[in-house]
Design a protein around this nucleic acid. Sequence first.
RNA 1: GGGGCUGUAGUAGAGUCGGUUACAACGCCGGCCUGUCACGCCGGAGGUCGCGGGUUCAAGUCCCGUCAGCCCCGCCA
Length: 595
Amino acid sequence: MNDKLGDWKRTHRCGELTADLIGQDVCVMGWVQRRRDHGGLIFIDLRDREGIVQLALDPDRDAESHKKAEQIRNEFVVAARGKVSARPEGTVNPKMKTGEVEIEISEMLILNSSETPPFMLDEYTEVAENIRLKYRFLDLRRPALQNNLMLRHLVAKTVRNYLDGEGFIEVETPVLTKSTPEGARDYLVPSRVNVGKFYALPQSPQLFKQLLMVAGFDRYFQIVKCFRDEDLRADRQPEFTQIDCELSFVSRDDVVSVMEGMVAKVFKDAIGVDVALPMPRLTYQEAMDRFGVDNPDMRFDLELINITDLVAGSQFKVFADVAANDGLVKALNAKGCATFSRKELDDLTEFVKIYGAKGLAWVKVTEDGWQSPIAKFFTPAELEALNAKLDAQVGDLLLFMADTPKVANEALGRLRGHLGQKLGLADKSNYKFVWITDFPLLEWDEEENRHVAVHHPFTSPMEEDIPLLDSEPGKARAQAYDLVLNGSEVGGGSIRIHDQAVQSRMFELLGIGNEEAREKFGFLLDALSFGAPPHGGIAFGLDRLMMILTGADSIRDVIAFPKTQKATCLLSDAPNEVAEKQLRELGIRLRSKQN
RNA sequence: GGGGCUGUAGUAGAGUCGGUUACAACGCCGGCCUGUCACGCCGGAGGUCGCGGGUUCAAGUCCCGUCAGCCCCGCCA
């Protein structure tokens, strides 16, 4: 039989009890981390979200509590009153924040018992993730997840305070909204009162925040759930949280500068790190040239070097052919890596194949020159030129990639990131930001045989590139920007189109006809024609930001109730089948399972 | 849609070349213990080797299929 809480009031949280409270009578409540029964003395480590404190139960002081303590097991819920006292000489535990003190218990309640947990709730036990997810409420008791979520709260609070100070107003936008054809797959919600019609859950509040600018709110933000029905990754969940912002009467630099301030404030308040402002910037083109990707990890060099011209005339057919067919030959110099084993080189080759590369050429630079399967194809003059271009020193490992520009950049760029990790150059406590700007506006989609928007269809072209929309739309650049942190895209945004005519032209370029545009985005076009101010914005992925701030390897470790890779919830067992009655009301009939 | 890794007491693991009754640790249960703190000592219980099929005299081990979790490619404006 459990004790009743009655009129007991907690005075402190367990983790708060330190030496300056010695002599005070306190009352704590929490979960039993551990009981150490010495037959006489019993010690209980009591845990709450702030930490652990030791309760000392002496049969000579309070026989009743001591007797109760004998039946206590892990995870029982306990309330205890007593005096904070200094631990006896030689029994201080320097590993604990509360290790100088203990509570001499004079009265104790067992508020609830507990089954034996399926896994130990300590910091030492590693548990398979499916078990952790099934018993998420227990996993969340462990300090690692508690700290992550408490830090997440602190970040959200800091963001709200900062944006409020900068004149932003938080406005909620609909969760039941309209499906948009561009972009990710929508989560759909059938409408009962409009049978046969569907809402979509928002991939982002994009259109609504633009409407708020038209409405004159001037600066908007929202910490908001967004939904994308796409496959999951270590850093991707089907529902995720964005810090979504939009500003009126601003240029790109205005947006960048306000947001840099926010990010710096977050890093200072959350983890005490000073971020140097302004943050560095790279154009998209420069990022691709030097790093092969649009989200470069700036914690290390290992830059990609274009050697297409140097090898175009060489006897090495693989390189020469690629050069002759508008391909790209690029190399990177892994300093001091000539010691790599055959196995390691094979692994690197396997790695680039994931990204569609056919192979990877390597060169170990030795005292006697190139040790490499491809050395024999080059003349001494070519070797000299390559060595000079790549700054090759004895002991270096040169890696070459020849392919279409798309594959060569991506494969070698990813290899660069992989090497950075492998060589220990990607220190988690080193935070390197970079803005990527001047993205292309459009990208040709082979499958759909049309242009698609690189960012989204509401992104404004660069002023000076607007004429290109009629001549060479593929060359037009966008007023778009991404914030990249340690190789991870943590935010992205753009200056939007506020001119109805330009927006119509944009839809045209995307192969969205007039009628379709009216049907899908008529309300936006209408709004733009009623005095839309110049505006732009950005959205940050709060989950990814939290991953970096906490050092988590998985997005699931910064979300209270995450989904598995198959987008299911092992705790609640969602998604589940629903009653036939519910389906009938919605006018939905399921295809039989045989088909 | 595709590639890869993992799956053995409650937990996390070992299990050799296919061969006796599947191991030790932590946890759990019982007993002892008045200064421990991942307490200690003694004793005990606990197994559909993910699931299904196959090969074999014999399968945790080999083969095929399947399920689940994870990582990746595609996908994610």
